[in-house]
């Protein structure tokens, strides 16, 4: 199903928020303000946004080490996210998780995850809970091309398919698992082909075309809500940055990088919005500058927030 005007404008705002948040993270990391590892989603905004535009607050997602985009698309608050990146007490995880572990269970975000592929069986469990309770909620599992080679992928797709669970597996194929190209890691061109092994639909789409992602996800979410089981959607995309900030990406060919930069999903969406007369370019530019200001506010919030209390090292290990 095609997105409506309102949906498409919301999608534009979400993608622009992810772009602004991640662009700011580049600067902040370079300035030495963010401890630890930061894995950025720049260039892949259409995937999380196109998928999550089909979800409600009652649906779940599992995310990855490259999770900021998924969290924003599922409604995560950028000030709390930014504070977590800074390791502050006001952050989503009170400074205990950092970029790789941000979660908001109340929004259905079951966490970014530092282990490649670990979100897959977790998503199956959340989907099981949705079905067990006889709700029509669904779970979306985001993972990369690298995670498609883990044993968790097989066990999760097998269990989800045999039990017809309401889960949508979204393979974000950004062509590289750290430095290893997909071509050296698997003997199939399309991860989506692996769906056949589980007797479920597999669809490969242009992950830089947010409308294509939206439509594929819309079908899959409807199927899951109907009780017809999982779908595997492969979104072909490209990560603009290194695996983490600080990785110079020597393994990527400059011509590939250049050609993918030309497929930037945001100008493509802007052209569509203008073409459909949903907005004028100056209106879109104004939205983008408002979003940049919101990100600056989030940074200010993070910078002015208190550091965690040392005593908090010992809390939150167990629920009472």
């Amino acid at each position: 199903m095609e997105p409506t005007k309102d949906q498409l404008l919301d999608i534009f705002k979400t993608m622009s928020t992810i772009r602004a948040f991640e662009s700011k993270a580049v600067e902040l990391f370079a300035a030495g303000k963010l401890p630890g590892f930061v894995h950025l989603y720049l260039g892949e905004e259409a995937v999380a946004t196109g998928v999550c535009a089909n979800l409600t607050i009652k649906d779940y997602i599992t995310s990855t080490h490259r999770g900021h985009g998924h969290l924003i698309a599922k409604g995560g608050k950028i000030d709390l996210m930014m504070a977590e990146l800074f390791g502050k007490k006001t952050g989503y995880c009170k400074g205990k998780g950092g970029s790789m572990h941000i979660a908001d269970v109340d929004l259905g975000i079951l966490g970014a995850n530092g282990i490649v592929g670990a979100g897959q069986p977790i998503s199956v469990g959340a989907a099981f809970a949705c079905k067990y309770r006889k709700t029509d909620s669904v779970t979306v599992c985001f993972f990369g091309d690298g995670a498609s080679n883990r044993g968790t992928f097989h066990e999760s797709l097998n269990m989800a398919s045999v039990w017809k669970l309401p889960v949508i597996f979204v393979a974000e194929n950004n062509m590289y698992g750290i430095s290893n190209s997909q071509k050296t890691s698997m003997n199939v061109a399309d991860i989506a082909d692996r769906a056949a092994a589980y007797g479920i639909p597999g669809v490969a789409v242009d992950g830089n075309d947010v409308i294509a992602v939206f439509e594929a996800a819309s079908e899959a979410v409807k199927r899951a809500r109907r009780g017809d089981g999982p779908t595997l959607i492969e979104c072909k995309t490209w990560r603009w940055r290194g695996h983490f900030e600080g990785d110079p990406s020597v393994y990527k060919k400059p011509e590939d990088q250049e050609s993918w930069l030309k497929k930037d999903p945001i100008p493509r969406l802007e052209a569509k919005l203008v073409d459909l007369k949903y907005a004028t370019q100056p209106e879109l530019d104004k939205i983008k500058s408002e979003i940049k200001a919101q990100v600056e506010d989030a940074v200010k919030f993070a910078e002015e927030s208190a550091l965690p209390d040392i005593e908090d090292v010992l809390t939150d290990v167990y629920a009472n």
């Binding site: 269970v105 469990g125 099981f128 067990y132 066990e155 269990m159 045999v162």
Partner: peptide
């Protein structure tokens, strides 16, 4: 069969899905 469920031979999915189901409010 809704509450006592045979799984495939799949320890990773058993333990991992218990985590997801518990996070979503069940008590596996």
């Amino acid at each position: 069969p809704e509450r006592v469920i045979d799984t495939p031979i799949t320890e990773t999915a058993i333990a991992g899905s218990a985590v997801g189901a518990a996070a979503a409010g069940l008590r596996p």
